[in-house]
Amino acid sequence: MCSRIAPLPEGVQRVAAALQAQQHPHMPQMLDAAARTAQQAADALGILLGQVAKSVIFRRRSDDAVVLVVASGDRRVDEKKVEAHVGSIGRADAGFVKSRTGFSIGGVSPVAHATPPVTLIDRELLRFDVVWAAAGHPHSVFPLHPRDLQRLTGAPVVDVVQAAP
């Protein structure tokens, strides 16, 4: 990790403002290397893969809504379980993600979206005292307790991942 002198990217500024508005005690941190994947984030931070709160975006078919699933980095999202909560979903391409969330893939934060998403938090994140989420840019992350995800997003904690191997 490093501290940069240059101004923070716009997406990181939005996330920082949202965290500050909700009195979250930890602001985004910039990493030296990109953390576009959960594994890259875990390696950069020196944490377990499961401690990465990855953001997975889907597109709800009925109304074109953004569906955000925040899941543990060591788990695979089960689309059928997601559909049981939100209805039929499809894949979201990079253009959809950027235009609807305001973030590029690899930097999608669980907060400060351009369009409020339908959000689900996977219960597997509760295994950890601290998790790390993307903060609006592939080089930016912030720490939080998994229960803080509920407070910051208003989302339910549910089972939306495949069983552990």
Rank of each mutant, 00 (worst) to 15 (best):
Val56Met: 08
Gly106Trp: 02
Ala71Met: 10
Asp32Ile: 14
Gln29Glu: 13
Ala44Tyr: 03
Arg75Trp: 06
Ala114Val: 13
Val77Thr: 05
Val67Cys: 03
Val97His: 07
Thr115Ala: 12
Leu31Trp: 07
Thr37Trp: 06
Leu48Met: 13
Gln39Met: 11
Arg91Asp: 15
Phe96Ser: 04
Met27Trp: 10
Pro25Ala: 00
Val82Asn: 01
Gln51Pro: 08
Ser109Gly: 06
Glu83Cys: 13
Arg60Met: 10
Pro25Phe: 03
Pro25Leu: 01
Arg100Phe: 09
Ala41Glu: 03
Gly102Ala: 02
Ala42Gln: 00
Arg59Val: 08
Val69Phe: 05
Pro25Asp: 06
Gly50Met: 01
Ala35Val: 14
Arg61His: 14
Ser62Val: 11
Ala42Asp: 07
Ile105Lys: 02
Gly50Phe: 00
Thr101His: 02
Asp43Glu: 14
Gln39Lys: 12
Asp43Pro: 10
Ile47His: 00
Gly46Ala: 10
Ala92Ser: 09
Gly102Leu: 08
Pro28Met: 04
Val111Gly: 02
Pro28Asn: 04
Val97Leu: 10
Ala44Pro: 08
Gln40Glu: 15
Ser62His: 09
Thr115Trp: 09
Ala34Val: 12
Val66Cys: 09
Val111Ser: 02
Ile105Asp: 03
Val69Tyr: 05
Ala42Cys: 06
Gly107Val: 03
His26Cys: 09
Val86His: 03
His85Tyr: 12
Arg91Thr: 14
Arg60Leu: 13
Asp93Ala: 06
